[in-house]
């Protein structure tokens, strides 16, 4: 999908430039975009080094386990079909906790593990269970307490206050998450499938 989008972005740009007779502007733009991206990456390194370092300390101090304990009761409520002490629940809790802390690298392996465990509870192996659909929806709107990449980008762009987005981001994703969970519960009755 992204391959097509990228290709068509460039194709459309060239067609527009030809019709407007400003093809020479495009070559200037390509090189100015490139130098922008280099400046950006240099700035980004600083923020990423800071946040990934801090998050590593959080990870090693067991903060992930503590947050897991806090969200487990909520998870039990949302995923009624999944045994609350089983491997599937454990992997899902770890995945969501990692997402909350912005530990994307840890979240994906845990998410894949959770899907495998959920599949062992599935009776129709090619059809998604309610729990799987819900897990993906919860992943679509993760509540992030430390949006490290965006904060790094903001500081590299000269923001005077990179952390200002934390509060609106938490509020926004809470609303998105709640809406998604409700929509998922309502839709699961109409989309076929068993449990």
């Amino acid at each position: 999908m992204i391959n097509k989008i990228w290709f068509f972005m460039i194709l459309i740009a060239v067609i527009f430039a030809i019709t407007a007779g400003k093809l020479e502007l495009l070559s200037e733009e390509i090189f100015s975009s490139l130098s922008t991206s280099v400046d950006l990456a240099i700035g980004l390194i600083g923020g990423m080094v800071l946040w990934c370092g801090i998050l590593k300390v959080a990870e090693k101090s067991g903060l992930v386990d503590n947050i897991s304990r806090l969200i487990r009761p909520v998870m039990k409520l949302i995923f009624r079909d999944v045994p609350s002490r089983g491997n599937a629940m454990g992997a899902m809790v770890m995945n969501i906790t990692s997402n909350m802390l912005g530990l994307g690298n840890a979240a994906t392996p845990m998410g894949l593990k959770a899907m495998q465990e959920l599949q062992t509870l599935n009776h129709k192996k090619e059809m998604a269970t309610n729990a799987m659909c819900m897990f993906l929806v919860v992943n679509a709107a993760p509540i992030q307490f430390i949006p490290a990449t965006v904060m790094s980008l903001r500081s590299s762009m000269g923001s005077t206050n990179p952390g200002i987005i934390i509060l609106p981001a938490i509020l926004t994703s809470s609303i998105a998450l709640t809406t998604g969970v409700i929509a998922c519960k309502l839709l699961e009755k109409t989309s076929g499938g068993g449990r």
Partner: peptide, 27 residues
């Protein structure tokens, strides 16, 4: 995620996830 376990029928997942996404943008 679904590809990794061979699920073909994803049912209402995309619809519900898109609703969450749109709610997020508006919010």
């Amino acid at each position: 995620y679904f590809g990794s376990i061979g699920i073909k029928n994803i049912r209402h997942t995309l619809a519900a996830a898109l609703i969450a996404e749109i709610a997020g943008v508006v919010a």
